[in-house]
Design a protein around this nucleic acid. Structure first.
Lengths: 115, 115
DNA sequence: ACCGTAGTACGTCGGTTATCGTACTAGCGC
DNA sequence: GCGCTAGTACGATAACCGACGTACTACGGT
């Protein structure tokens, strides 16, 4: 089972991903923004934590990415000095079909309604 | 705009319903259970707070129903000594199409996966 | 008028969260 | 090796949250 060494981060197995945790992870504006950004990337593409400019400190950024990873929403891997992130689309779509898309669509509608 | 008198509870207008607040409201197991219960009722049917047996104190129950109401997930109205609840299906489906159904479906799958 | 049922208000308590700053480590390129 | 960039670890802090108990109100029935 998922073992975390120095440069090997701990991710929940698909079976261990809890809906409540996913919803909670998505219920923070900052994290929803991260997810929206990752979802906007070309399929399979990944991005560094620094690729999106949240307006908070580095440590806060680290924190939000960790919450997303521990909830099972994203995968994080080290690549050289960067830590790359991508959505766990396949896992999430299998576990909770339509959830990610529906939430992203809801988010889009909300911001089109002039946030 | 929504005015709350003694027996008239305060509900957010549809435009004021925030996705983050809805997701947060749904991210608690107790509240998700309430929503699942209300969603299982025949269309337009409503239920008293006491109709579902959460295993917590009355005050905690009140608390969770209030969070759901303030997030815009449910409507609460007083009917005699009871306080009746129902899902704001129409509003939610208009604002965030498919969201409620997708979350409920995800919840069903999760509990079928042997909770 | 009294009682029972349904739910509220309020204060508390312990745990979690979001934020920060500071000090640190890991890898890359020169 | 040096320094830059990217991110971590840790500790602090303030806010929030879920749970509780107790004391209360409101309504309906007898």
């Amino acid at each position: 089972m998922s073992l975390a060494t120095a440069r090997n981060l701990d991710h929940p197995e698909p079976e261990a991903i809890r809906l409540e945790a996913v919803l909670h992870a998505l219920s923070d504006p900052m994290r929803l923004r991260i997810v929206r950004f990752l979802a906007s990337l070309p399929l399979g593409e990944e991005a560094a934590c620094s690729a999106i400019d949240l307006v908070v400190s580095k440590s806060t950024t680290t924190h939000h990415f960790r919450v997303l990873r521990e909830a099972g929403v994203i995968v994080q891997v080290y690549r050289g000095t960067a830590k790359m992130n991508r959505l766990r689309r396949e896992d999430l779509d299998t576990l909770f079909p339509g959830l990610v898309d529906t939430v992203l669509d809801a988010d889009t509608r909300q911001r089109e309604r002039a946030d």
